[in-house]
Computed example of a mutant assay.
Amino acid sequence: MATSKQTPQSRTDHDSTRPSASRPPRTVDGLRELVVKIGRDEADISLGGTAHTVLAKLLERPEEVAVRTITDLAASLGVNASTLTRLSTRLGYTGFADFQNVFRDSIAQRHRHFYSQQAERLVAGKTNRAAAADGGAASPEVETVVQLARESIINVEGFLSQLSPEHLRGAARMLAEAKRVRIHGLRQFSALASFVCYGLSMIRTDVALLDAQGLGVAEGLAQLQPGDVVVVTSVAPYTRSVAEAAVAAAQSGLSVIAITDTLASPLVPPATHAFLIPHESSFFSNSMGAYLVFCEGLLNLVATHLGKRSLQALERRERLITALGIEI
Protein backbone atom coordinates (compact mmCIF):
# COMPACT_ATOMS: atom_id res chain seq x y z
CA MET A 1 0.00 0.00 0.00
CA ALA A 2 1.34 3.40 -0.93
CA THR A 3 2.14 5.83 1.83
CA SER A 4 2.58 9.56 1.61
CA LYS A 5 5.32 11.50 3.28
CA GLN A 6 4.11 13.90 5.95
CA THR A 7 4.92 17.46 4.99
CA PRO A 8 5.86 20.16 7.53
CA GLN A 9 2.48 21.79 6.89
CA SER A 10 0.57 18.57 7.64
CA ARG A 11 2.52 18.13 10.88
CA THR A 12 1.59 21.67 11.90
CA ASP A 13 -2.09 21.01 11.20
CA HIS A 14 -1.93 17.82 13.25
CA ASP A 15 -0.26 19.56 16.18
CA SER A 16 -2.86 22.34 16.16
CA THR A 17 -5.59 19.83 17.03
CA ARG A 18 -3.99 18.41 20.14
CA PRO A 19 -5.06 19.89 23.48
CA SER A 20 -2.66 21.60 25.80
CA ALA A 21 -0.67 19.16 27.91
CA SER A 22 -1.12 21.38 30.94
CA ARG A 23 -4.37 22.24 32.67
CA PRO A 24 -6.22 24.91 30.64
CA PRO A 25 -6.61 28.40 32.16
CA ARG A 26 -9.50 28.89 34.56
CA THR A 27 -9.59 32.69 34.31
CA VAL A 28 -10.10 35.12 31.45
CA ASP A 29 -6.77 36.77 32.28
CA GLY A 30 -5.14 33.36 32.02
CA LEU A 31 -6.68 32.89 28.59
CA ARG A 32 -5.40 36.29 27.50
CA GLU A 33 -1.89 35.29 28.56
CA LEU A 34 -2.24 32.05 26.63
CA VAL A 35 -3.26 33.91 23.47
CA VAL A 36 -0.11 36.02 23.71
CA LYS A 37 2.06 32.93 24.22
CA ILE A 38 0.45 31.16 21.28
CA GLY A 39 1.10 34.18 19.11
CA ARG A 40 4.77 34.09 20.17
CA ASP A 41 4.93 30.31 19.69
CA GLU A 42 5.79 29.96 23.38
CA ALA A 43 2.83 27.74 24.35
CA ASP A 44 2.60 23.95 24.28
CA ILE A 45 -0.34 24.28 21.90
CA SER A 46 -0.73 25.89 18.48
CA LEU A 47 -3.85 27.18 16.79
CA GLY A 48 -4.67 27.78 13.16
CA GLY A 49 -5.12 31.36 12.05
CA THR A 50 -8.91 31.24 12.17
CA ALA A 51 -9.03 29.64 15.63
CA HIS A 52 -6.51 32.14 17.01
CA THR A 53 -8.53 35.07 15.64
CA VAL A 54 -11.80 33.67 17.02
CA LEU A 55 -10.26 33.20 20.48
CA ALA A 56 -8.93 36.76 20.46
CA LYS A 57 -12.36 38.12 19.51
CA LEU A 58 -14.04 36.10 22.26
CA LEU A 59 -11.69 37.64 24.80
CA GLU A 60 -12.72 41.11 23.62
CA ARG A 61 -16.32 40.42 24.72
CA PRO A 62 -16.18 38.31 27.91
CA GLU A 63 -19.64 39.39 29.10
CA GLU A 64 -21.24 38.11 25.90
CA VAL A 65 -19.34 34.82 26.00
CA ALA A 66 -20.55 34.31 29.57
CA VAL A 67 -24.25 34.47 28.75
CA ARG A 68 -24.88 33.90 25.04
CA THR A 69 -25.49 30.49 23.47
CA ILE A 70 -22.85 28.84 21.34
CA THR A 71 -25.10 29.32 18.30
CA ASP A 72 -25.49 33.07 18.91
CA LEU A 73 -21.78 33.56 19.51
CA ALA A 74 -20.83 31.62 16.39
CA ALA A 75 -23.26 33.66 14.29
CA SER A 76 -21.87 36.94 15.65
CA LEU A 77 -18.34 35.81 14.74
CA GLY A 78 -19.30 34.47 11.32
CA VAL A 79 -18.25 30.89 12.07
CA ASN A 80 -19.98 27.56 12.70
CA ALA A 81 -20.79 26.44 16.23
CA SER A 82 -18.55 23.43 15.64
CA THR A 83 -15.61 25.84 15.31
CA LEU A 84 -16.14 26.98 18.91
CA THR A 85 -16.44 23.40 20.10
CA ARG A 86 -13.19 22.40 18.38
CA LEU A 87 -11.45 25.50 19.75
CA SER A 88 -12.54 24.61 23.29
CA THR A 89 -11.20 21.06 23.07
CA ARG A 90 -7.94 22.19 21.46
CA LEU A 91 -7.37 24.43 24.45
CA GLY A 92 -7.84 21.45 26.76
CA TYR A 93 -11.43 22.01 27.93
CA THR A 94 -13.94 19.17 27.95
CA GLY A 95 -16.20 21.15 25.61
CA PHE A 96 -17.67 24.59 25.00
CA ALA A 97 -19.66 24.56 28.26
CA ASP A 98 -16.43 24.04 30.24
CA PHE A 99 -14.77 26.84 28.25
CA GLN A 100 -17.76 29.16 28.80
CA ASN A 101 -17.66 28.54 32.56
CA VAL A 102 -14.28 30.29 32.67
CA PHE A 103 -15.96 33.48 31.46
CA ARG A 104 -18.96 33.05 33.75
CA ASP A 105 -16.78 32.54 36.82
CA SER A 106 -14.56 35.51 35.96
CA ILE A 107 -17.51 37.84 35.40
CA ALA A 108 -19.19 36.69 38.62
CA GLN A 109 -15.98 37.31 40.56
CA ARG A 110 -15.56 40.77 39.05
CA HIS A 111 -19.15 41.77 39.82
CA ARG A 112 -18.85 40.47 43.37
CA HIS A 113 -16.11 42.98 44.13
CA PHE A 114 -17.07 45.71 41.64
CA TYR A 115 -17.35 48.64 44.05
CA SER A 116 -14.29 47.87 46.17
CA GLN A 117 -12.20 47.30 43.02
CA GLN A 118 -13.34 50.63 41.61
CA ALA A 119 -12.37 52.29 44.90
CA GLU A 120 -8.98 50.59 44.86
CA ARG A 121 -8.31 52.02 41.41
CA LEU A 122 -9.35 55.45 42.65
CA VAL A 123 -7.05 55.32 45.68
CA ALA A 124 -4.17 53.94 43.60
CA GLY A 125 -4.56 56.81 41.15
CA LYS A 126 -4.33 59.39 43.93
CA THR A 127 -0.55 58.99 44.14
CA ASN A 128 -0.16 59.41 40.39
CA ARG A 129 -2.29 62.56 40.40
CA ALA A 130 -0.31 64.03 43.28
CA ALA A 131 2.96 63.32 41.46
CA ALA A 132 1.62 64.98 38.32
CA ALA A 133 0.65 68.03 40.36
CA ASP A 134 4.18 68.25 41.76
CA GLY A 135 5.42 68.22 38.19
CA GLY A 136 3.50 71.39 37.37
CA ALA A 137 0.25 69.84 36.20
CA ALA A 138 -3.19 70.75 37.55
CA SER A 139 -3.88 70.10 41.21
CA PRO A 140 -4.95 66.52 42.08
CA GLU A 141 -8.39 67.84 43.03
CA VAL A 142 -8.91 69.42 39.62
CA GLU A 143 -7.34 66.44 37.85
CA THR A 144 -9.82 64.07 39.52
CA VAL A 145 -12.76 66.00 38.09
CA VAL A 146 -11.08 66.42 34.70
CA GLN A 147 -10.41 62.71 34.46
CA LEU A 148 -14.03 61.80 35.22
CA ALA A 149 -15.27 64.34 32.67
CA ARG A 150 -13.00 62.94 29.98
CA GLU A 151 -14.10 59.40 30.78
CA SER A 152 -17.74 60.44 30.47
CA ILE A 153 -17.00 61.98 27.08
CA ILE A 154 -15.50 58.68 25.94
CA ASN A 155 -18.60 56.84 27.18
CA VAL A 156 -20.86 59.25 25.30
CA GLU A 157 -18.83 58.75 22.12
CA GLY A 158 -19.10 55.01 22.71
CA PHE A 159 -22.89 54.91 22.63
CA LEU A 160 -23.11 57.47 19.82
CA SER A 161 -21.06 55.18 17.59
CA GLN A 162 -23.61 52.37 17.85
CA LEU A 163 -26.95 54.18 17.95
CA SER A 164 -29.64 52.68 15.74
CA PRO A 165 -32.02 55.18 14.08
CA GLU A 166 -34.67 52.46 13.83
CA HIS A 167 -34.53 51.67 17.54
CA LEU A 168 -34.54 55.34 18.49
CA ARG A 169 -37.61 56.02 16.33
CA GLY A 170 -39.34 52.90 17.62
CA ALA A 171 -38.69 53.67 21.27
CA ALA A 172 -39.73 57.31 20.92
CA ARG A 173 -42.95 56.26 19.18
CA MET A 174 -43.75 53.72 21.90
CA LEU A 175 -43.10 56.22 24.69
CA ALA A 176 -45.26 58.84 22.97
CA GLU A 177 -48.20 56.67 21.94
CA ALA A 178 -48.55 54.07 24.71
CA LYS A 179 -51.52 54.60 27.01
CA ARG A 180 -49.39 54.03 30.11
CA VAL A 181 -45.63 54.15 30.71
CA ARG A 182 -43.83 52.84 33.78
CA ILE A 183 -40.13 53.28 34.58
CA HIS A 184 -38.18 50.83 36.71
CA GLY A 185 -34.66 51.11 38.12
CA LEU A 186 -33.31 50.39 41.58
CA ARG A 187 -30.33 51.26 43.75
CA GLN A 188 -28.17 53.82 41.95
CA PHE A 189 -30.36 53.59 38.84
CA SER A 190 -33.44 54.60 40.77
CA ALA A 191 -32.11 58.13 40.22
CA LEU A 192 -32.05 57.63 36.45
CA ALA A 193 -35.54 56.10 36.54
CA SER A 194 -36.82 59.12 38.44
CA PHE A 195 -35.17 61.50 35.97
CA VAL A 196 -36.77 59.76 32.97
CA CYS A 197 -40.12 59.60 34.75
CA TYR A 198 -40.02 63.32 35.59
CA GLY A 199 -38.97 64.36 32.09
CA LEU A 200 -41.54 62.17 30.35
CA SER A 201 -44.35 63.30 32.65
CA MET A 202 -43.66 66.90 31.63
CA ILE A 203 -44.82 66.17 28.07
CA ARG A 204 -47.43 63.39 28.42
CA THR A 205 -49.82 61.85 30.96
CA ASP A 206 -49.94 58.52 32.80
CA VAL A 207 -46.23 58.13 33.46
CA ALA A 208 -44.97 56.80 36.79
CA LEU A 209 -42.32 54.69 38.47
CA LEU A 210 -43.31 51.04 38.34
CA ASP A 211 -43.42 50.74 42.13
CA ALA A 212 -44.03 54.38 42.98
CA GLN A 213 -46.21 53.60 46.02
CA GLY A 214 -44.04 50.80 47.36
CA LEU A 215 -46.75 48.19 46.86
CA GLY A 216 -44.49 45.89 44.87
CA VAL A 217 -43.49 45.27 41.26
CA ALA A 218 -46.15 42.60 40.76
CA GLU A 219 -48.88 45.05 41.68
CA GLY A 220 -47.38 47.69 39.40
CA LEU A 221 -47.28 45.31 36.43
CA ALA A 222 -50.80 44.07 37.15
CA GLN A 223 -52.14 47.59 36.57
CA LEU A 224 -50.85 47.59 33.00
CA GLN A 225 -52.32 46.17 29.81
CA PRO A 226 -50.74 44.78 26.61
CA GLY A 227 -49.39 47.69 24.60
CA ASP A 228 -48.31 49.65 27.66
CA VAL A 229 -44.58 50.32 28.01
CA VAL A 230 -42.12 49.48 30.77
CA VAL A 231 -38.67 51.11 30.70
CA VAL A 232 -36.07 49.16 32.70
CA THR A 233 -32.53 50.23 33.51
CA SER A 234 -29.62 48.46 35.19
CA VAL A 235 -25.96 47.78 34.46
CA ALA A 236 -23.31 45.36 35.67
CA PRO A 237 -23.42 44.28 38.42
CA TYR A 238 -27.11 43.94 37.49
CA THR A 239 -29.96 44.17 39.98
CA ARG A 240 -31.66 40.78 39.82
CA SER A 241 -35.18 42.03 40.53
CA VAL A 242 -35.03 44.58 37.67
CA ALA A 243 -34.05 41.83 35.23
CA GLU A 244 -36.86 39.63 36.53
CA ALA A 245 -39.35 42.49 36.18
CA ALA A 246 -38.30 42.97 32.55
CA VAL A 247 -38.92 39.30 31.79
CA ALA A 248 -42.28 39.33 33.60
CA ALA A 249 -43.35 42.47 31.73
CA ALA A 250 -42.53 40.95 28.34
CA GLN A 251 -44.33 37.72 29.23
CA SER A 252 -47.41 39.78 30.15
CA GLY A 253 -47.55 41.33 26.68
CA LEU A 254 -46.05 44.67 27.70
CA SER A 255 -43.48 46.43 25.55
CA VAL A 256 -40.06 46.69 27.20
CA ILE A 257 -37.39 49.31 26.56
CA ALA A 258 -34.01 48.58 28.16
CA ILE A 259 -31.34 51.15 28.99
CA THR A 260 -28.32 49.06 29.93
CA ASP A 261 -24.65 48.47 29.11
CA THR A 262 -23.85 45.45 26.90
CA LEU A 263 -25.49 42.71 24.85
CA ALA A 264 -24.70 40.39 27.75
CA SER A 265 -27.13 42.30 29.97
CA PRO A 266 -30.12 40.23 31.18
CA LEU A 267 -32.32 43.21 30.25
CA VAL A 268 -31.63 42.78 26.53
CA PRO A 269 -33.51 39.52 25.69
CA PRO A 270 -36.97 40.67 26.88
CA ALA A 271 -36.62 44.15 25.35
CA THR A 272 -38.16 45.33 22.09
CA HIS A 273 -35.60 48.13 22.02
CA ALA A 274 -32.33 48.00 23.97
CA PHE A 275 -29.83 50.85 24.21
CA LEU A 276 -26.26 50.06 25.27
CA ILE A 277 -24.44 52.81 27.16
CA PRO A 278 -20.83 52.35 28.41
CA HIS A 279 -20.05 53.27 32.01
CA GLU A 280 -16.31 52.67 32.27
CA SER A 281 -14.68 55.26 34.51
CA SER A 282 -12.59 55.85 37.63
CA PHE A 283 -15.74 56.69 39.62
CA PHE A 284 -16.11 54.30 42.55
CA SER A 285 -19.52 53.20 41.26
CA ASN A 286 -21.20 53.10 37.85
CA SER A 287 -20.68 56.32 35.91
CA MET A 288 -24.01 58.01 35.13
CA GLY A 289 -22.91 60.84 32.85
CA ALA A 290 -23.45 59.11 29.52
CA TYR A 291 -26.79 57.68 30.71
CA LEU A 292 -28.16 61.13 31.46
CA VAL A 293 -27.03 62.45 28.08
CA PHE A 294 -28.71 59.55 26.29
CA CYS A 295 -31.95 59.90 28.25
CA GLU A 296 -32.12 63.63 27.51
CA GLY A 297 -31.80 62.81 23.83
CA LEU A 298 -34.50 60.14 24.01
CA LEU A 299 -36.88 62.49 25.85
CA ASN A 300 -36.32 65.14 23.16
CA LEU A 301 -37.24 62.58 20.51
CA VAL A 302 -40.47 61.76 22.37
CA ALA A 303 -41.31 65.47 22.61
CA THR A 304 -40.67 65.86 18.89
CA HIS A 305 -42.90 62.88 18.11
CA LEU A 306 -45.69 64.30 20.27
CA GLY A 307 -45.41 67.66 18.52
CA LYS A 308 -48.14 70.09 19.62
CA ARG A 309 -49.27 67.69 22.33
CA SER A 310 -45.96 68.09 24.15
CA LEU A 311 -46.15 71.87 23.77
CA GLN A 312 -49.67 71.92 25.20
CA ALA A 313 -48.60 69.73 28.13
CA LEU A 314 -45.69 72.05 28.93
CA GLU A 315 -47.90 75.15 28.71
CA ARG A 316 -50.47 73.59 31.04
CA ARG A 317 -47.69 72.73 33.46
CA GLU A 318 -46.41 76.31 33.35
CA ARG A 319 -49.87 77.68 34.16
CA LEU A 320 -50.13 75.41 37.20
CA ILE A 321 -46.64 76.37 38.39
CA THR A 322 -47.61 80.04 38.15
CA ALA A 323 -50.97 79.52 39.85
CA LEU A 324 -49.38 77.68 42.75
CA GLY A 325 -46.46 80.08 43.06
CA ILE A 326 -43.97 77.23 42.94
CA GLU A 327 -41.07 79.05 41.28
CA ILE A 328 -39.39 82.23 42.49
Rank of each mutant, 00 (worst) to 15 (best):
F284L: 09
A243W: 08
P266T: 10
V235L: 09
V232R: 03
L254E: 03
G297Q: 06
F275E: 04
N286V: 12
L221Y: 07
E219K: 14
S234L: 02
A248Y: 02
S287A: 15
H273L: 01
T233Q: 02
L299H: 06
S234N: 02
S287L: 12
F284G: 05
S241H: 12
L298M: 14
N286G: 01
V229P: 05
A246E: 05
A264G: 15
I277Q: 01
V229E: 03
G289H: 05
G227R: 10
L267I: 04
D206P: 08
T239E: 13
V293S: 03
A236L: 09
L298N: 10
S285A: 13
V293K: 00
A290I: 02
A290N: 00
G216W: 09
V302E: 11
D261K: 01
D206C: 10
T233P: 00
V235C: 11
P226C: 08
V242W: 04
G297F: 09
L224K: 10
T233R: 00
L215Q: 14
L292D: 00
G253Q: 10
A246S: 10
T262I: 08
V230G: 04
E280S: 11
A250N: 15
S252Y: 01
M288D: 02
Q223Y: 01
A246I: 04
S234I: 03
A271P: 04
A274S: 14
D261A: 09
V235A: 12
V207Y: 11
V235M: 14
A218T: 15
E280F: 01
A303R: 14
P266W: 08
N286K: 04
V256Y: 04
I257N: 04
S282P: 00
V302Q: 09
A271T: 07
G297W: 09
P226Q: 03
S282K: 01
E244T: 13
V231N: 05
L224M: 15
P278D: 05
D228Q: 13
V230I: 12
L301Y: 10
L299K: 08
F284Y: 09
V235R: 13
A236C: 00
A222C: 07
L224A: 07
L298T: 10
I259L: 15
L209V: 03
P226T: 06
G216D: 10
F275I: 07
A212G: 03
L254I: 06
P269T: 08
A222R: 15
G297S: 10
Y238C: 01
L210C: 11
A236S: 12
H279A: 12
N286Y: 02
Y238K: 00
A246N: 06
Q213Y: 12
Q213S: 14
A246L: 04
L209E: 14
S265P: 05
R240L: 13
P270R: 06
I257P: 00
P270W: 02
P237Y: 10
P237H: 10
V256M: 06
A208P: 07
A208K: 10
V293E: 02
I259A: 09
S255N: 15
F283L: 12
C295K: 03
D228M: 12
A222V: 03
T233D: 03
G297M: 08
L209F: 05
L263D: 12
T205N: 15
V268A: 06
V232I: 13
